[in-house]
Design a protein around this nucleic acid. Structure first.
Length: 745
DNA sequence: AGCACGCCGACT
DNA sequence: GTCGGCGTGCTC
């Protein structure tokens, strides 16, 4: 922090330099401030602190424009108080990306820019202790075991040309603690020093262990390699599950790094803990991994490494897209169809689409990979906006797993209501007998969907939301999956005092059933209730890969990107959960989920089998997933979207108006809808609504939505953005805009 | 999003 | 007569 010189507190008389800043708050306008000469020269992208409001509260902001002298004619400007960095934190391409995100996703610019930089950036660099040999002749025989072992390790490292190693590494490899090293320092044998932390080159896998790309992979690599260094291009890499997309990424990234440039690889949040990624990281040059498990300081450290050229590759979730690579050569978005790329709070950007925009701005290629591309990306490929590259076969000639769709109603065993039907039970038993592993998907948290009274119809509901509480076994409580509110399970119906019943199945109930049916199986449950930290996630996956577990039971987090050769059977307990959601993407999500989870089977020596349980086996999403028929699914679903005028046939902007008072929200929505119809109707925008949201009341707020279906991208935003501030002030209810929404609850 | 301002009710 | 409740509106 560089303080302002004028200690008498008086702002300069006349401002010769004026900057336009975006404050990190829900303010839609930019504000002008005088730039004190004492702060040096201003620059776009610089972080500053400015006095804001009547109390002149110091507020973080970004300089977005340095005004020329004739633009700067305004007087009486408050002065910028502090500079937070010496150099602009966001360079020009990221500033332009931030401006695009702010406008396209209808978010205030200051908030958007702030979301692009880790909060702790600018804090002093982390230090680490390093150990090196002094060169003094060691009398090894005179040393104790621990000191001896440490010296051996250092001497061995030095023979390999490594003169300095970190204390942490020495501790890891020789078991020497700091005390041991200090003793060696006293003997004059080693030196202990501090230096700023630097990234280690993790490329360790010897060439012999390198997977050899097959013909398909080589063709894909060649096709994309041709585009490197030749400006913007977008490629949709459609490779079936197990076709080796990761190998294609590795080869392309190495190519880019060899040419002296940096690469960004985006993966869904969940995949960051997977062993696929761990393996991948060891095969790449200096990697900065950015994920949610990092502390603020660690995140800031990697961020700075990328900016200063200390990292060649950035691997991370959504926000890794904003890595300040100054010399970018390639962006890859793995599993591009994943919903977790969409941020669900402002700025509500989609990292895949923002990645394409960054590639446009930086004039570099972008690769979108998936076994089940989103219909948006498929449509873009059909339109010629993306090039399509395919990997139609699995590696090593592995067959696609065989899917068996079973009708749950015919699976009941002796009339008993059970969710693991006859076929699936039998196949799990067989897999366990053969010492093979099983992945079981149950896409619903909790034990039972709701608690109700059979005699009077009372349902245990959330007091803050218009939804039933989901019964959780461990806590014996009802839990709201929308607002996290919980309530004790009453002993009897509070309305009529009769006995209460549990209705519906959740993953915890499946867990009970599995344990009852297979008492000797080692089972781990993996859902957001049990996986509260990335470490837990990694631990369970580690156990499963070491075959210390037989059955991995999970919500959709087990469907994604896992690669365990021991898995021969995958079960989908109920394929209907995601179909039941009233959303135009329900079929697409169901198809993707089944195909993705099926892809976890048969990656090793034994061919995989998949059992999909459903009450609606004739449903196209399920029928087509049975034969991994992506083309067939797209051929049915894409025309349907055109008939209904839903994305990708149109571009959707969703506006939600919410208020504690239902009629206030409804009236505000009605007024706004009328206004929008008048203004946008002529521009090819269909205004639907207002209508109550899928979940009418959430967190004590009643919600009404207006859906805007536009023929062209950006039409709605162009009209709406300049009016957002005025609208949010004028409307009685709170206004939330979501562009290209994925969740329509 | 904060934060100050302001116009009413409950208290000393 | 004053403190403070949180509705309202602005931030260079």
């Amino acid at each position: 922090v560089i303080p302002l010189f004028d200690s008498d507190g008086k702002p300069p008389e006349t401002a010769s330099v004026v900057v336009r800043v975006a404050v990190n708050q829900a303010i839609w306008r930019t504000l002008d401030y005088a730039w004190p000469a004492a702060l040096g020269s201003p620059a776009r992208g610089l972080r500053v602190r400015v006095p804001l409001g009547k109390g002149n509260k110091l507020t973080p902001a970004f300089v977005v424009e340095v005004l020329t002298s004739d633009q700067a004619a305004r007087r009486n400007l408050k002065p910028v108080a502090q500079k937070l960095d010496h150099e602009p934190q966001l360079h020009e391409p990221l500033m332009r990306l931030g401006e695009w995100i702010s406008h396209y996703y209808l978010a205030p610019l200051g908030m958007t820019l702030a979301a692009m930089v880790p909060a702790a950036v600018g804090a002093p660099a982390r230090q680490e202790e390093v150990v090196s040999l002094t060169g003094a002749d060691p009398n090894l025989a005179a040393l104790g075991t621990r000191q001896r072992r440490a010296m051996d390790h250092l001497l061995e490292a030095s023979r390999q040309g490594i003169g300095t190693i970190t204390l942490q590494q020495l501790r890891l490899h020789s078991g020497a603690d700091r005390q041991t090293v200090v003793s060696l320092v006293r003997r004059g044998l080693v030196a202990l020093a501090s230096r700023p932390v630097v990234l280690q080159d993790t490329q360790q896998v010897p060439q012999a262990d390198e997977p050899v790309p097959n013909e398909d992979q080589l063709a894909a690599i060649a096709a994309i390699r041709d585009k490197l260094g030749k400006g913007f291009s977008a490629t949709l890499l459609h490779g079936v599950t197990g076709s080796g997309k990761t190998e294609v990424y590795v080869r392309l990234i190495r190519e880019v790094v060899a040419a002296g440039r940096q690469a960004i690889l985006l993966t869904p949040e969940i995949a960051l803990a997977s062993q696929t990624l761990t393996r991948l990281v060891t095969r790449l040059p200096r990697v900065a991994v950015l994920h949610s498990g990092l502390s603020a300081a660690q995140r800031a450290f990697y961020y700075q490494q990328v900016r200063d050229g200390g990292a060649d590759v950035v691997v991370g979730a959504r926000s890794a897209l904003f890595a300040p690579a100054r010399n970018l050569g390639l962006i890859i978005v793995d599993e591009e169809h994943e919903g977790s790329y969409k941020q669900d709070s402002a700025p509500r950007y989609h990292a895949r689409d923002a990645a394409v925009m960054r590639a446009v701005i930086e004039k570099v290629p972008v690769v979108l990979g998936s076994a089940t591309p989103s219909l948006e990306s498929l449509y873009n490929a059909r339109q010629g906006k993306y090039d399509l590259v395919r990997l139609p076969r699995r590696v090593r000639g592995l067959p696609m797993p065989r899917l068996e769709v079973v009708h749950l109603r015919r699976e009941l065993q002796g009339g008993v209501v059970e969710i693991i039907g006859r076929t699936l039970t039998l196949m799990i038993a067989q897999a366990l007998d053969r010492r093979e592993q099983v992945i079981l998907l149950m896409n619903r948290r909790g034990y039972a969907s709701y608690v109700f009274c059979p005699s009077c119809g009372w349902i245990m509901g959330c007091e803050r939301c218009s939804r039933a509480l989901v019964f959780h076994q461990a806590t014996r409580q009802g839990l709201c999956h929308y607002c996290d509110h919980s309530a004790e399970l009453p002993a009897h119906c509070p309305a009529c005092d009769k006995k209460l019943l549990l209705f519906g199945y959740g993953i915890q109930r499946i867990e009970d059933e599995i344990q009852r049916k297979f008492p000797h199986a080692r089972v781990a449950r993996m859902d957001s209730d049990t996986m509260t930290s990335p470490e837990q996630f990694q631990q369970v996956l580690g156990q499963f890969s070491r075959r210390e577990l037989d059955i991995l039971l999970g919500t959709q987090m087990v469907a994604k990107g896992l690669d365990f050769p021991g898995v021969s059977l995958v079960g989908v307990a109920s394929a209907d959960t995601s179909l039941a959601i009233p959303d135009f993407r329900a079929a697409e999500r169901t198809f993707q989920l089944i195909v993705q989870v099926a892809g976890r089977a048969g990656r090793g020596a034994t061919p995989g089998a998949v059992v999909v349980q459903t009450l609606v086996p004739q449903e196209p999403a399920i029928r087509l997933a049975q034969t991994h028929d992506y083309a067939g699914f797209a051929a049915a679903e894409l025309p349907a979207r055109f008939e209904t005028g839903t994305p990708p046939a149109t571009r959707l902007v969703r506006l939600v108006l919410r208020d504690e008072d239902a009629s206030v929200a409804q009236l505000a929505a009605a007024g706004l809808a009328k206004e929008l119809k008048a203004a946008l109707g002529a521009r090819g925008v269909r205004v639907a609504g207002p209508q109550p949201c899928g979940v009418l009341r959430m967190n004590n707020l009643y919600r009404f939505e207006i859906l805007l279906f536009a023929q062209k991208p950006g039409v709605v935003q162009q009209w709406l953005w300049p009016r957002m501030e005025e609208l949010s002030r004028r409307l009685e209810a709170e206004l939330v805009a979501d562009v290209d929404p994925l969740q329509l609850l």
